[in-house]
């Protein structure tokens, strides 16, 4: 297991450097957002899957945790057209 943890740690470190590096490239808005969110998403998944052992947990835990994520997305995507696009 120790080896897995260190590999994950290495990946997280590289991804952090990557996302900071990309931010200095002055990509266009859409590109910058895509890269930053993609990298953040991968990092979050790695931490949850391996450090929090979500990958090895039972379905009940998956069910509750993913339901929360689902409702956050509902909140975000249903408010967004109303307030986020008002300009």
């Amino acid at each position: 297991m120790k080896k897995t943890y260190l590999t994950v740690f290495g990946t997280l470190a590289v991804l952090t450097l990557l996302t900071v590096g990309v931010s200095y490239l002055h990509l266009n808005r859409a590109g910058a957002i895509t890269v930053a969110l993609l990298v953040a998403g991968i990092k979050v998944s790695l931490i949850a899957a391996f450090f929090m052992h979500l990958k090895f947990e039972k379905k009940v835990i998956h069910g509750i945790f993913y339901t929360a994520l689902f409702f956050v997305l509902i909140l975000l995507f249903l408010i967004f057209p109303d307030i986020g696009l008002s300009q």
Binding site: V72, F80, I83
Partner: peptide, 13 residues
């Protein structure tokens, strides 16, 4: 999620 959603919608809107 509530905080970050608020941030995102105000940031763009």
């Amino acid at each position: 999620g509530g905080f970050i959603s608020s941030y995102v919608v105000l940031r763009t809107g």
